[in-house]
Design a protein around this nucleic acid. Structure first.
Length: 259
DNA sequence: ATGGTGGTTCAACCA
């Protein structure tokens, strides 16, 4: 089972890229973040024509996530539990089934949190607290769980070309990093890190200041696997070349193969 | 220290 996560930064602006990518990469399941569309505006038919079932959790203008699957997809749930009054569409789950392998798949768009010292950073940490609690519940089911998305957290200095440049950024704050470590310590495996222990693996390059041309990237899109999912880990990586296309998303797709 | 770019929606917000 090939699973992809991709922050496409606007599904309407990126529809051509998304369709080309799906044709070339042929994932069984893909989770999008930042679709920046309401459910009714999501171009589901274009994806259905490629054989995908489509489930969305949209929002006007900002945020928004979606799951596409060419495998049977069941039990779709929308929203991260514990968010009374949280209007932001950043999380959804579905069970995808490939023969005897049934995976609980989540696509998530963790709050950016900038600037630090504001309610945005507080919201980020609170959201991570909710994710921790929910991940604990998912792990207790002992089924294969895949938590994939834009975490907006740089885990370690090795995950940035210029770590010092991110010192005052919400993506690299000690609190953000500690919270991510706490989530992983529940028993989750960072699939890309497990397959690529060395430096230079990035998933995001800013549009500004020629970041892409300088390979001035950061690794903030992650696929975390429960022990039962990690048992099936075959390979993982970043489809970096998509970031080099014309008018790209600032994020590249990240994939994992479970066998 | 600032501004550099891009998407969505419509002057401003988010990243």
């Amino acid at each position: 089972m090939k699973i992809v996560t991709w922050n496409i930064n606007g599904v309407k602006a990126r529809l051509d890229h998304a369709l080309i990518y799906l044709r070339e990469s042929k994932p069984d399941v893909i989770g999008f973040q930042e679709i920046k569309s309401v459910d009714e505006g999501f171009p589901a038919e274009a994806f259905e024509d490629l054989g995908y079932k489509v489930a969305t959790h949209g929002q006007k203008g900002f945020n928004g996530v979606a799951i596409l699957s060419r495998l049977p997809m069941e039990d779709v749930t929308r929203g991260l539990p514990g968010g009374d009054g949280d209007e932001q569409s950043r999380y959804m789950e579905a069970t995808v089934i490939d023969g005897t392998l049934a995976v609980r798949f989540a696509t998530l768009y963790l709050p950016n949190g900038n600037p630090i010292g504001t309610d945005k950073f507080t919201y980020k940490l609170a959201w991570m607290e909710r994710l921790t609690a929910h991940a604990r519940k998912l792990l207790a089911t002992e089924m294969p769980v895949v938590l994939a998305g834009d975490y907006n957290v740089i885990p370690e200095p090795v995950d940035a070309k210029r770590p010092a440049a991110w010192t005052n950024d919400a993506l690299f704050q000690p609190e953000s990093r500690a919270m991510l470590r706490r989530i992983e310590a529940l028993g989750l495996t960072d699939a890309v890190r497990a397959c690529h222990p060395g430096p230079g693996v990035y998933t995001f390059w800013d549009y500004q200041a020629g970041a892409w041309q300088k390979d001035d990237g950061i690794r903030i899109d992650h696929i975390l696997l429960s022990p039962q999912a990690a048992d099936h880990l075959q390979a993982a990586g970043v489809d970096k070349h998509i970031r080099g296309w014309e008018k790209p998303s600032d994020h590249a797709p990240v994939w994992v193969e479970l066998g």
